[in-house]
Design a protein around this nucleic acid. Structure first.
Lengths: 318, 318
DNA sequence: TTGAAAGCGCTAACAA
DNA sequence: TTGTTAGCGCTTTCAA
């Protein structure tokens, strides 16, 4: 490029970056030529010499569950405000586990945020000193941990169902890798503490799977009159199944979801849900990364672990 | 790092990359030390010397409209399969226009895919020779163009409404920067050609705005019996407004949405919609980028412009 | 206003 | 098995 223009590498730099110490005419000539040649400076050479702008990896299990884009959206927004950029990896479809995502993202990013579950510890070891902030897996060994107070959430929901005169309550959990979820455990414990007998159901984490699970449950045992569901997407499927079976919601069976995504206001009846302020979650995650990188917060210290609470949003379904 | 371990830079390279020509003991010692020091190789130096893995920019107007994450998801999947990574920029919330997104992404990526609208031409000029693939803006001057046959789509929808005995049909368009959309134009033209008198409505591109627009329309003119909506998200809002007003769908007013996102199956009644195969759109976009970068397709050539068609999916709302 | 020299951190090729 | 040399493409510092 420098050669083509008949000037020094230096002059090219000055022209491309609108730096001083170059005549307007030279600048224009070089820029013109660059456009013609389709030349653009190597981001690697630039990053190497200038010290890079931060790039944040975001590992998401499933972009088709509206919860995750809502979260991603706020992470991207927060990151953009700091001048960072965000590299997204969706390890939901064929592309493997959270660990695969970390392996792909690792060489590209300065920090990682993600729903990494049991892979958290290994993810942090792949990333070395670069901070990993893990969501919804409090027992992980990552630099930062953001988790949710499900005991509190479960209590809010169960109290609501009880006070709505529900006596035969079921909890529909997501079947992730065959094991019970953190949420499922908390709900079961809270119910037991309150002396509530809970029917446990499971389905894959999708609206259609939840719909099918509830349909089949209704065939065997029609007497459920209160339903708490792992997340809003699955709750939407459950609502559908109840309607298919001719059950009125909330009269015959009350339903409470979890997440608080906008979808809940579009279904009929509108979904009562344990709502998370997703913008706040995204902000917390990016803040934590920021503080971890700047050293204001030590990895693994008290400040590196956040516990967020749900809020019960009453709409029509319970 | 090399110094700290008391070995050469080369040995470090060999250890970190599991390359041959190094004793197992040295490798482990170096890796161990790297872990302790939190050392990880600079991605810039690496990229500089190795020739980078491609990184694809994805500019999205609004991740909170489920259409876009669904699209993003398939782009990420396709890119991952090629070993590329995807840098996402959401220019929806405060973070400005599509052009801002391009400015942010430009220095970071080798190619760009996005809903860039009127910014397409300028986006391509910022990117230089690096290909830009623009969706849904057929008149842009980008290297690649993917657009949709709205005339065909409008015809499918209007025919359906007519054959369902709708006689007073309205079209609810999104109000993007105050101007009519490509979709809106196509619908108006198609209706005019068929001699259908169409009521034109507008609202912001969100479920709640659409709900409010329909609510207010119903107050003034209750006689609409068929409604075509800019996208499924807005259609979901419209459905809500009709229900609020006590109108039965489809008996009193049939509704057809556009996009074919999964949300349509969760609302009540389920949404009849002009569906796009979003996986196919994502695949087409990434394929096009790939072909453009490899030179198999010339920028601006015939093959660089794709027109995709919608399919009418009949559910309950029309 | 322009150019020359040095070096960012890494890896490929070659030598020991 | 290990180390040395050279160079990726850019920007910073200094000299012309």
């Amino acid at each position: 490029m420098a050669a083509a223009a008949g000037v020094s590498r230096q002059t090219v730099t000055r022209a491309m970056n609108d730096m001083p110490g170059i005549s307007a005419s030279t600048r224009e000539r070089v820029q013109q030529l660059a456009a013609e040649l389709g030349y653009s400076p190597s981001r690697f050479a630039k990053g190497l010499v200038q010290g890079a702008r931060t790039s944040l990896g975001l590992a998401i299990p499933d972009l088709t569950n509206p919860y995750f884009p809502a979260f991603a959206s706020s992470v991207v927004e927060e990151a953009t405000q700091r001048g960072w950029n965000v590299v997204v990896d969706d390890f939901g479809h064929g592309s493997g586990s959270g660990l695969d995502a970390v392996a792909r993202l690792g060489p590209q990013v300065d920090a990682l945020v993600g729903y990494l579950g049991a892979s958290s510890t290994e993810a942090q070891s792949i990333m070395g000193r670069r901070p990993v902030v893990v969501l919804d897996y409090p027992s992980g060994q990552a630099a930062g941990l953001i988790s949710f107070d499900y005991a509190y959430a479960a209590q809010l929901a169960l109290e609501r169902l009880m006070s709505a005169q529900c006596r035969r309550i079921a909890y529909l959990d997501a079947d992730l890798e065959g094991s019970a979820t953190t949420r499922g455990l908390a709900v079961a414990t809270t119910a037991a503490d309150a002396g509530i007998e809970l029917t446990l159901l499971q389905s894959a984490d999708s609206a259609s799977a939840a719909r099918e699970a509830i349909r089949s449950m209704l065939e065997h045992d029609g007497r459920i009159d209160g339903l708490l569901v792992f997340n809003d997407l699955m709750a939407a499927g459950a609502l559908k199944a109840l309607r298919d079976a001719g059950r009125r919601v909330p009269e015959d069976c009350a339903v409470i979801g979890m997440d608080g995504i906008p979808l809940g206001e579009l279904v009929t009846p509108e979904l009562t849900t344990l709502s998370l302020d997703l913008r706040a979650v995204g902000r917390a995650a990016v803040d934590l990364v920021d503080n971890l990188m700047s050293g204001r917060i030590q990895a693994g210290s008290r400040d590196s672990e956040l516990v967020l609470k749900h809020q019960l949003v009453l709409r029509q379904s319970a």
